[in-house]
Design a binder for these strands. Sequence first.
RNA 1: UGCCCCCUCGUCCAAUGGCUAGGACCCCGGUCUUUGGAUCCGGUAAUGGUGGUUCGAAUCCACCGGGGGCAACCA
Length: 560
Amino acid sequence: MSTETPKRDFIRDMVAADVASNKFGRPICTRFPPEPNGFPHIGHAKSICLNFGLAKEFGGRVHLRFDDTNPFTEDIKYVEAIKRDIRWLGFEWDAEYYASDYFEQLYAIALKLVERGKAYVDSENEDEVREHRGTVTTPGTPSAYRDRSVAENLDLLSRMKAGEFADGTHVLRAKIDLAHPNMIMRDPILLRIAHAPHYRRGDAWCIYPLYDFAHGLSDAIEGITHSLCTLEFKDNREIYDWLVREAGFERPPEQTEFARLVLDYTVVSKRKLLRLVTDGHVAGWDDPRLHTIAGIRRRGVTPEAIRAFAENVGVARKPARTELAAYEHAVRNDLNMRVPRVLCVVNPLKVVLTNYPEGSVEPLDASYYPHDVPLTGSRPVPFSRELWIERDDFMEDPPKKFFRLAPGREVRLRYGYLITCQEVVKNSAGDVIELRCTYDPATRGGNAPDGRKVQGTIHWVSAAHAADCELRLYDTLFTVPDPDGLPEGQDFTSVLNPDSLVVVHGAKVEPSVAADPIGTRYQFERTGYFISDEDSRPGALVFNRTVTLRDSWVKEKAKG
RNA sequence: UGCCCCCUCGUCCAAUGGCUAGGACCCCGGUCUUUGGAUCCGGUAAUGGUGGUUCGAAUCCACCGGGGGCAACCA
């Protein structure tokens, strides 16, 4: 069980201090501000856990705010996906807001800025604006329109809003400093013209705020106390503070940046995710190889595992990568304590028990949980003369440390009998197609009355009772840990793992699972954790492998 | 090349000028075992470098080195 040691990180320390000093004079308020233009992923999960977790821990509030300021890319289907995924993770927001509901207030602030000479309408085109911004080493130069009168700016701005101008003809810019060392502060654009229907506001607006203009002010409008974001927004903090101050907010929110989550062997950029989906490298946004929340869910990972993972990873200011092993540990650790064990043979090899009575079937009682998992329950597993065992559990010429079946060797069938391999049957090509074994009737349940030790235990299913099923065995989508860090010019699709999905047909699963609902999780003993997929049909079961079991035999084998 | 951020075991995170630099993951060894799972026990392994401040520095300062962010009318 998990020991509830309180989480400690620089953000929690800061919030704790603010709460202790009653800095804001009211409970804290955080927010999760996604743009509804893509599916949330494991990186968002970290941010969600942080923002929602903080609010809960410190008795505050958390807002879900859709940062929907770009009419070209956003869609209602993404807001639905985001809400669904947050809830799946186990969180509920105290209030739901949309930046697009603040367009009026933002416009009023724009007017105020113009009146006070803090903003102006620039009529340069996009290229000119870019060119005149200068570079990181050279200062920018003021636009010819920078010193327009307040009256002219007001007139232009109202006509921009009224829809008199075409896209790109004018923008509203903050009047700060074209030579500012922080590029963000070189008269950032506040409002742009876009004659595009907004998924929520329809055609009501044809001027849209940019991120910097909308974000901090939305925080301030909502009374956010702690605005947490990722490191790449560090430079934006300066304009955030400038705007909130100029707008006259009394107790402005404070932005704090933390390192985003980067998981080895994964990509989460929206552009890349979109390409994987649209180019058919994966089956969709919920492909279990993707670390979208939807993919993770379909893969069989639990929300509890994701939350534990987020907690284990921690929160810091250091840009960092996390090993996949840390993720897999969280997944196994959670599943181990909650899912039933069942028997499934991935790659079947026929075993005939020559001394077992023909036509006879006996139900063996098999526990769903091992002794160290505090859950109880069992089911009968039919045992008969012909069985399937795992092909990998037999070797004709085994190395010394191989504890499984081999000619003349004895193993234990899980929950069943001890059997000994007497004869190996091969086809004309020399492939092993059947094992003829004898069982020891005195060992029902797996123990020998004479006390002889049998090292190996293997899983099995009765051939006559097993259900055929499809197994989808997932591996990493990429062959390298950092598909984002490829040499210049090398596309990330060049490191796609051709074996990221191996589909196994004709696996044999015990009959007890046949009627279980879609989404049931299991441990297939000695093989891994699986979940029944939505593609399952009665008589045509499909299981996704969530994660393998740790396997010390593969390590042993690798040593030679 | 300007500004900003960052640098502690292989990886992630602690140590808030003061005890032997701690925990987790991975790895290695052992225990146990009707899952080569789990559990339990033990082990390996780090303050980027050089100076400085100080009784005392992972922590403060300077410089060097390394990593990252910023020049969308994206967020």
